[in-house]
């Protein structure tokens, strides 16, 4: 499982990073989304992989922390998901405003000189 997940993180990150360095705004926004998947999974994986033991506690009594998934990366990623949506929205607006303003969808607001 670890190999598959780490490979998946790598592929998502590589695709995202490649798109991040592309000249079209839409490529960059898709790249950021892919990168945020990769990063969220990465942070999530820092809590190690646990199957079938979500962090839902019994009501009272002794709790063995080793028996449950680590809640901290989950809490971090949960807020990250929401915030990444917000930044995507902001970037999208900047993107379409820049396109309306400059007439091009190049990230620099002007086409590269050939």
């Amino acid at each position: 499982m670890e190999i598959v997940l780490s490979a998946a993180i790598g592929i998502l990150a590589a695709s995202g990073a490649w798109l991040l360095m592309r000249p079209r705004t839409f490529q960059v926004i898709v790249g950021l989304c892919l990168l945020s998947y990769a990063v969220n999974l990465f942070i999530f994986a820092m809590g190690r992989l646990t199957v079938g033991a979500p962090a839902i506690m019994p009501k009272g009594g002794f709790v063995n922390p080793d028996a449950y998934a680590d809640p901290i990366p989950q809490a971090l990623v949960l807020t990250a998901i929401v915030i990444s949506f917000a930044t995507t929205a902001l970037f999208l607006v900047v993107m379409i405003a820049s396109r309306g303003f400059s007439g091009t969808d190049h990230v620099d607001g002007q086409e590269r000189n050939l």
């Binding site: 670890e2 780490s6 695709s15 990465f42 019994p58 709790v63």
Partner: peptide, 30 residues
């Protein structure tokens, strides 16, 4: 970049986790 991310993710996932503040949260959430 992707390879580096993969490598570090794999390395962390295959090392045992040390005690974190997460244990405290689990014990005291209720």
């Amino acid at each position: 970049f992707g390879a580096a991310m993969s490598a570090i993710a794999f390395m962390v996932m295959t090392r045992p986790q040390l005690a974190t503040v997460g244990d405290w949260f689990l014990r005291n959430a209720y």
